[in-house]
Structure formats: structure tokens, C-alpha cells
Simulated assay, not measured.
Amino acid sequence: MPIEKAQEIATDALIHLTRDPEQVGRFLAVSGIGPESIRDAAEEPGFLAGVLEFYMADEAMLLAYCENSGIRPTMIAMARFALAGDPADYA
């Protein structure tokens, strides 16, 4: 998957996430960033991959997002891989 497509998917996922105050609150808590710095954080390498990882950690949320967006859940994994590479590389 081209990096541009991966960024598009992750950005859309982030926008979708911000529409749910409970989930965005949970995301901010997990990521350790404050709501005032989310725009700055979004420009950091790895942030968009982290958004996709957040979805991948919650199957119900992932499936709901994919259904609403018209994409397959495997596209989320492909986009995450395009943005951050293989998780085994970090072990």
C-alpha cells in the first residue's frame, strides 16, 4: 500500500475517532497526549500508525469504523504496516 493511501486511511480514522468523546478520551489516555497537543502529535512520525493500532486493539470499534468507512479490516493492518513497518522489527 502506498504511504499516501495509508496516511489517508489513518487520518480518516483519526477524524472518525474524534467524533466519539469517550473513545477519543481513551485514546488520549493511552497515548499520553493532551487534547491541546493532538494536532502537533499528528505530525510526529508514528502517530498515525498509533491511531490504527488503537483501532486494532478493539475489535468492535475496528469493525464499526470499517463498516462506516466501507473498507476491509485488513486495510487497517496494511495501512499500519505501511506507516510503521513490521512490529517484529521493534522486538
Score class of each variant (00 low, 15 high):
40 D>G: 15
52 L>M: 01
18 T>M: 09
83 L>D: 03
9 I>G: 00
5 K>F: 07
43 E>K: 01
90 Y>K: 03
16 H>G: 02
9 I>K: 02
73 P>M: 14
67 E>F: 01
60 A>R: 13
65 Y>E: 10
5 K>W: 09
30 V>K: 10
34 G>P: 02
50 G>F: 07
77 A>L: 15
2 P>R: 15
11 T>G: 12
28 L>I: 03
34 G>T: 03
35 P>W: 10
44 E>L: 05
43 E>A: 04
8 E>T: 15
61 M>N: 08
30 V>S: 02
72 R>S: 09
78 M>V: 04
14 L>Y: 00
19 R>G: 08
48 L>N: 08
39 R>F: 01
17 L>V: 03
29 A>H: 07
68 N>Q: 15
38 I>H: 13
70 G>R: 10
78 M>A: 13
63 L>F: 06
91 A>N: 14
16 H>E: 05
15 I>F: 05
30 V>L: 15
24 V>S: 12
21 P>A: 01
26 R>P: 11
42 A>N: 02
56 M>V: 14
34 G>I: 04
49 A>D: 06
71 I>A: 03
24 V>L: 07
51 V>M: 01
10 A>G: 00
42 A>D: 04
44 E>N: 15
17 L>A: 08
51 V>N: 04
37 S>T: 00
20 D>N: 11
69 S>L: 07
33 I>A: 00
58 D>L: 06
67 E>K: 07
47 F>L: 02
65 Y>T: 09
81 F>D: 13
29 A>T: 10
68 N>T: 13
43 E>S: 05
42 A>V: 08
64 A>P: 03
49 A>V: 14
63 L>N: 08
3 I>Q: 06
27 F>P: 13
76 I>E: 05
58 D>I: 12
29 A>N: 09
29 A>V: 08
88 A>Y: 09
64 A>H: 07
59 E>C: 10
63 L>S: 07
53 E>T: 10
82 A>R: 05
45 P>V: 00
70 G>N: 09
10 A>H: 09
60 A>K: 14
5 K>E: 07
42 A>R: 05
18 T>D: 01
53 E>H: 06
62 L>C: 12
59 E>D: 13
45 P>Y: 02
71 I>L: 02
75 M>H: 14
78 M>Q: 13
54 F>I: 00
25 G>W: 06
42 A>K: 00
17 L>R: 08
64 A>I: 02
4 E>F: 05
14 L>H: 02
55 Y>W: 06
18 T>N: 01
1 M>H: 03
44 E>V: 08
31 S>G: 01
25 G>T: 02
61 M>P: 04
32 G>I: 08
88 A>N: 10
74 T>M: 15
57 A>N: 05
54 F>C: 04
12 D>I: 11
65 Y>V: 09
16 H>R: 09
71 I>C: 02
60 A>E: 12
52 L>S: 06
56 M>H: 03
7 Q>V: 13
56 M>Q: 15
1 M>I: 13
9 I>Q: 02
1 M>D: 00
19 R>V: 07
50 G>T: 06
71 I>Q: 04
90 Y>R: 09
61 M>Q: 11
66 C>E: 04
27 F>W: 07
53 E>G: 11
19 R>P: 07
6 A>F: 07
7 Q>S: 08
62 L>W: 09
67 E>D: 14
66 C>M: 10
7 Q>R: 08
48 L>G: 11
